[in-house]
């Protein structure tokens, strides 16, 4: 199964990338994927990073092939 992971703001900076395709076998929830992607990164408050799956905030869902997962640091619009 392949999913596209997008990184934004301070997460993209810490990961030094903005996007990658990840391939894995078996079931994985969005929050498990987040944990994997953020592992080892220098981010002070990982709990503040929200997950969007196919552009909807959601950390409970089990990922499907082709999903787009985004790791979103705290919002700062306006």
């Amino acid at each position: 199964m392949k999913v596209t992971v997008k990184y934004f703001g301070l997460v993209a900076e810490a990961a030094d990338k903005s996007e990658e395709v990840m391939e894995f076998n078996g079931e994985l929830t969005a929050s498990e994927l987040k944990e994997q992607c953020l592992y080892g990164l220098s981010i002070a408050d990982k709990d503040s990073v929200q997950i969007a799956v196919n552009q909807n905030l959601d950390d409970k869902t089990t990922l499907k092939d082709g999903d787009e997962v985004a790791l979103l640091p705290p919002f700062a619009g306006g």
């Binding site: 703001g9 979103l72 919002f75 700062a76 619009g77 306006g78």
Partner: peptide, 24 residues
């Protein structure tokens, strides 16, 4: 609503070119 819900990110840049990330 915009401040709370829209995924926009802001890098605050200082005069010495260092930066910090803004949080609403």
């Amino acid at each position: 609503e915009i401040k709370a819900k829209v995924p926009v990110f802001g890098k605050e840049i200082f005069e010495d070119e260092t930066h910090q990330w803004k949080v609403n």
